[in-house]
Amino acid sequence: MSYIVGLRNFLLKVVYRISRPVIFLMDPEAAHYRFKRVGVLLGSNALTKALTSFFFDYNHKSLNITVDGVKYRNPVGLSAGFDKDGELTSIYPSIGFGLAELGSFTGEVCPGNPGKRLFRMPKSKSILVWYGLNNQGAEKISARLKDVDFGRLRVGINAAKSNLTPEFDLQESIEDYTKTMDCFKDIGDYYTINISCPNTQDGEPFVNPEYLNALLTAVNEHRVEGRPIYVKLAADMELDEVNAIVDACVEHGMDGVVLTNLAKPKYNEEYVKEELPFHKGAMSGLPLNRISTSLVRHVYRRTGGKLTIIGVGGIFTARDAYEKITSGASLLHMISTLIFDGPQSISEINRGLVQLLKEDGFNSIEEAVGSRNPLPKLKAVQTVDDDKVKDIA
């Protein structure tokens, strides 16, 4: 069966490679909305969903994983930023996704940044994004999704702060996040608190420890039982800043982190410099691969594996995905591979993960998490107490 799926995926990849030059003649944002309409159509009835599944889906029991009480059929998910208004949930399972993170959603309706906002960088296998959190707002979107049955898809709700003004107000910003949480209190399977959008007018203020503590305190007050909360970090921070945020997440009882958001070109050396098309924005895809995996390894070790990690950035093959998993990620998010390699890449990544698990003698994804990133052992410390030496492990 795996061989047949592999052959199917190879033929679909060839078809996509032939079609891609024509697709890339279209404006990137126009292409995105055109294909989104196709996705809505395919997800609108049982017949088209079944046909899509026939051509793109793949299932295997070894891919099943339970994370923070939520059961996923596989760990491969769609990253936030693709489906900003939550319109495509009916079709995601049919192309192989186990989860999809919707949004970012903001408390208020947000138009995003003006002008051209999306640019392809084919040589770098990257998309330069300058959207600025455009979405219809938490109230409208949640009202539309409140009665939707997501079926076998697990859904994350990505909450961000509205990008309406360069003026930062702490209390208003916190209320913006919690408004989204409240609007979606009966929708989805987990929350992600996005403190790291690189394209907003007021920057990333929640890197400030005082502001972050205030936000996480408020987030905990709006928790929904059985709904994990993750915090999404930027790709461009100093290690001390990463440590401070991760430590705060542990202190406030957050369930995990998402590593990472987009990469700003001025802090990144992993792309073809002459290909950079715009002086603003941040990059997805291959430029993030090494950076995000390194952060997954660091955070997994720093927290002793106690925080769930969702790995994001530069996942194009099963080996890319497996490297993040064996470094400590339990779940994965991706977008760019859909654009550069085609939708069949999702099932091919899942199929490849099954093979890699078998090669390493694992029966499940859960067994592989962190397997190539052993946690540090606590050193024995000698103390003297009443002339007795005690070993403290």
Rank of each mutant, 00 (worst) to 15 (best):
Q171H: 09
P228L: 05
T260H: 04
D255Y: 15
G151V: 12
Q201F: 12
D236Q: 12
L259G: 03
F150L: 08
V219M: 08
S173G: 15
E251S: 13
V148S: 08
N220Q: 15
D236G: 10
E251P: 00
N243L: 13
L262A: 15
K146C: 14
M181V: 12
L216M: 11
M254C: 06
V207R: 09
T165W: 09
K161Q: 08
K179A: 14
G203P: 02
T180W: 07
S196M: 05
I195E: 07
L259K: 03
V257W: 07
A244R: 15
I245K: 04
Y230P: 01
A160M: 07
N220M: 12
A218I: 03
E238L: 07
Y190C: 06
T178K: 04
Y191H: 08
Y191Q: 06
K232V: 12
N243K: 15
P209A: 05
L212K: 02
D247P: 02
A214Q: 15
P166A: 06
Y190E: 03
I157N: 01
S173N: 06
V224L: 09
I193N: 04
R144L: 01
L262V: 14
E251Q: 11
E210G: 05
C197I: 03
M237H: 14
L170F: 00
L164Q: 07
H222K: 15
E204W: 03
N163E: 11
L262N: 14
